[in-house]
Design a protein around this nucleic acid. Structure first.
Lengths: 213, 213
DNA sequence: CGTCTGATTGAACTGATTCAACGGATGTGG
DNA sequence: CCACATCCGTTGAATCAGTTCAATCAGACG
């Protein structure tokens, strides 16, 4: 069990991973940084998410993980992790599922950044996070926690913070989202899904057993 | 063992996957199509690649797979696949590695499409494919097979075919690549890597045992 | 209070798109 | 062997979505 303040690296690209991390409280992100300084966030982690199951199969990290909010997480060492895998076929299956969903999310993000307009991209991120949080029981009706700054959103969508700001105003103007402080309100999820062409199939939520979380 | 002509869907989004496919000859791609018709390619498969290891854990496909060239591939049913997994820890490990690398590639593509310029993106695709093919012994000195049309490249990079065309002319003008027919020539791989900020770490090639291929 | 971080605004600019046309190579059927 | 169709690459001109740079504003916090 460990804690980390907001905006700190948990693991950096190039490091040799020594453990699997399970997020208990707070948000984190996976990101890649190019030599020219530009940064791309490729995943957001919320409570219950496993960062990099089985990474010790790989030699070194090809991306970094950083906290967004203050973070509480559990560190699971290779030995414990292997033991967990050996314990039951159910758990192994759940870990496979976790990794397959991870890959599916990454692919969806490629399509998001590659094919959607700024408005659609941002709306898509809202959809994904709201739906993921809801499936974990971490939403409250039409609202959920929202610790992301506009710069965070920019890094995730491949846009500039300035343009994210303008696009958010558009989304708010259309009544699709409201953000008050650290909270996101989605008055009409269906409308948001429609405008962002959101298809939840890639999250494979129906397959997720409670044990996976 | 099966064959498929060029430009045909092998599996479509929404289908229930019934088998794992191993590409034996030719190129294929994984793609996602948005309701508005825009298409994003998220992976290229070359001989030796396993498409969607263990997908039967998931309920339905969240993307499609299509042949680019005429294709020869092996279909491995769930039973055979499970047997393979059970057979040895080595194989299980190799399958894990395969899936982890797949996810890593997808993440790199997010960064590619999200942060790189048109020139860098296209150069990056050239680097990735040339290096992957080389590691499989499928390149010949500074050249390799290149069955992708400019439209294929456009779908993979989130650009239009028109802009890919212009950018290719730029790349050729700088002497970074040559394309003659179905062949790609990379006279100076280091220069190409430099301009595309290519870091091969995400391919985890050093970890790939011959058995994985 | 001052300082810091994050949100907001304006104006000029540019990388990439769009649309429409054309050229060349390849293949096919009569 | 020619006529025709198709696929792919190429070009030009106009337009636009998103960037850049720079300044301002608002709230939080010691």
């Amino acid at each position: 069990m460990r804690e980390l303040p907001a905006r700190r690296d948990l693991i950096r690209e190039g490091d040799k991973p020594k453990s699997v991390n399970l997020v208990l409280e707070g948000w984190a992100c996976r990101y890649k940084q190019l030599p020219n300084g530009r940064r791309q966030t490729v995943h957001f982690f919320v409570p219950g998410d496993l960062c990099d199951a089985n990474v010790f199969i790989l030699g070194e990290m090809d991306h970094s993980i950083a906290s967004i909010t203050p973070l509480k997480y559990a560190e699971i060492g290779p030995a414990d992790f292997e033991a967990l895998m050996a314990q039951s076929a159910e758990i192994t299956r759940a870990l496979w599922l976790n990794e397959l969903v991870n890959a599916a999310v990454a692919r969806e993000w490629v399509a998001n950044v590659g094919q959607r307009t700024a408005l659609e991209r941002i709306a898509h991120v809202f959809c994904e996070m709201f739906i993921r949080l809801s499936s974990l029981g971490l939403s409250d009706g039409d609202s959920c926690d929202w610790p992301l700054t506009q710069t965070d959103l920019a890094d995730a969508t491949g846009l500039t913070a300035v343009h994210v700001n303008r696009t958010l105003q558009d989304l708010r103007g259309r009544g699709l989202v409201r953000t008050s402080g650290r909270r996101l309100v989605v008055p009409d999820l269906d409308a948001l899904k429609r405008i962002s062409m959101f298809n939840p199939n890639y999250l494979h939520l129906n397959r997720q057993s409670p044990g996976t979380r």
